[in-house]
Design a protein around this nucleic acid. Sequence first.
DNA 1: CTGTTAGCGCTTTCAA
DNA 2: TTGAAAGCGCTAACAG
Lengths: 340, 340
Amino acid sequence: MNIQDVAKRAKVSVATVSRTLHHDPRVRPETAERVWEVIRELNYVPNSYARSLSMGRSQIVGLIVSDITNPFFPELVKGFEEVAIEHGYDVIAASTGYDPARTATCVQRMVERQVDGVAVMTSEFERSIYDQFISRDVPLVFLDVGQLAPGVSNVRVDYAHGLSQAVRHLRDLGHQRIAFISGPLGLESARVRHRDFLRALEQVELPACPDYVVEGDHRVDGGLHAMQRLLQLPGGPPTAVIGSNDLTAIGAIRAIRRAGIQVPEEISVIGHDDIELAGYIEPPLTTVRLSRTSVARAAFAALHTNLREKGAMGVELPVATELVLRESTAAAPATLPVPH
Amino acid sequence: MNIQDVAKRAKVSVATVSRTLHHDPRVRPETAERVWEVIRELNYVPNSYARSLSMGRSQIVGLIVSDITNPFFPELVKGFEEVAIEHGYDVIAASTGYDPARTATCVQRMVERQVDGVAVMTSEFERSIYDQFISRDVPLVFLDVGQLAPGVSNVRVDYAHGLSQAVRHLRDLGHQRIAFISGPLGLESARVRHRDFLRALEQVELPACPDYVVEGDHRVDGGLHAMQRLLQLPGGPPTAVIGSNDLTAIGAIRAIRRAGIQVPEEISVIGHDDIELAGYIEPPLTTVRLSRTSVARAAFAALHTNLREKGAMGVELPVATELVLRESTAAAPATLPVPH
DNA sequence: CTGTTAGCGCTTTCAA
DNA sequence: TTGAAAGCGCTAACAG
């Protein structure tokens, strides 16, 4: 069941059927109508491979993420697929899991499928991915890392804004001792958040005590352990802590509770990202929202400009962050919290 | 950069290159070696569309889910993609959102891409999906619904087992008044869980009080409202409640707390599915685990049998469920809980 | 406005 | 063991 069958049945040439399919204004309305009828009748759907092959475009974009266990990413993937489909593209998604072999495989799959463009939403700049696609003239968009270049765009998240709101919020609540649990500092994206936290402290003229910055791993356990270290600080624990992501903050809350300390009465906690979970836990988490949908839309939009105009310079699209107040923050306690 | 380039460079015909690519034993080892060298040298990757076109197979399978906002599904999608890729297939995923128009679009996309098979993991039997694919000879696998047929398989979840363990567990803790918050009873999958809960009660000879079964919507809010109704029952609230899924149970816990009642000291709560969230909330949720990975593997395996052997009868693959003990259940209270 | 036809890159007979 | 050539289904340039 192919275009020929339709052509025969409608008593026209395949070219006319093809044109009709593309709403080419050159086909006479009556002819088009007849063709459409046959198409409906035969339940005909064009073969996208034949089309891709002859057009040299696949109408597929790739999406590469690193750590799928981070709840941020599934939501990103979903958002990205939605925008892509709206624009007539399908997407092939893959996660590298920080594994070079897996990364190579997933790049290969995408090259085989002749993806028209790729969004690389890992937490690092991946040179091998970059090289493979750039040498094949496939437009790319990165998240937070890398430089603009022809065909290479960037989605730049404004962490500073949300983090600065968070710190200000805590300061206004009377907090002076604000700690930060970072992500793995091996990752560029974690370093950026860390840096922007420090800057936010400066802005409100609060001291940045090195003891109050500890490294987590962007997961619950890392947050938990980091918080435990914070609680045992000889100078006393902080009265507020900001996690580099929500999972970290959740781990921190757990550690605080286990030490017999109240959240938020004794220690306030703020997360980052606003994953769905954030609203469900007890207490609902005050957090810096980083909209997955915005990132996804920006990423696709960036790609799309390079898809339309081959060889054009990449663009840099900003994505905002913003503090969401829930119930894990409260006024600083009169006396320092003490692990029981 | 195509197969011809490789052929020329290696001084063989395209046929030989093609054979080499497929590890055809007929090509002389030395020849093959030379070809591979050129392939590496040129960084050549075959065009999968040309291949699909000439082979009539796409090496892509489709995955259709209904409600992507249910945390069960993203995990299913991820698992499915993993197995598929292991077996050399890519997957196109889509969610219907219970919307017939969207459903039609997503079926169309899959037909265009000539998917070799489709896993339909919605909560209902979808006749339109069925018809479209079956008429095109595309193998299908359903979750919990529908009948076996040539090319049509089924993944059958054994809800009864886990639910029966759950009820038994509560009974052993001394609970007599066990309520159930179902999913939307318009959905087949929700009705099955409901039915199996009732059977489990029977098994342990506990009475099934109709007041103790209320309808939720598989989301947090539905669980919350349903629980509120349960708390206002003239005969007094239950001492334990089982949710048709984890979100429902989380909503129930929230309602109980808001009424000033303790979980699990006064009311025990059990969820279903064991989504990742379940372990993170307070208290960690006792729940019936339904492994997404198992469902995904079973679905792909079922599809795979029909992919290999065109026209073969579908298979029915069982997936187990199992109670996971955490901290949301405890011995039944001596006196009935009272909303404060 | 419509038809003819030469590819797109690969697989696969059939012949050698 | 290798090569030549006929498709796979569609698009687009060219001709009418």
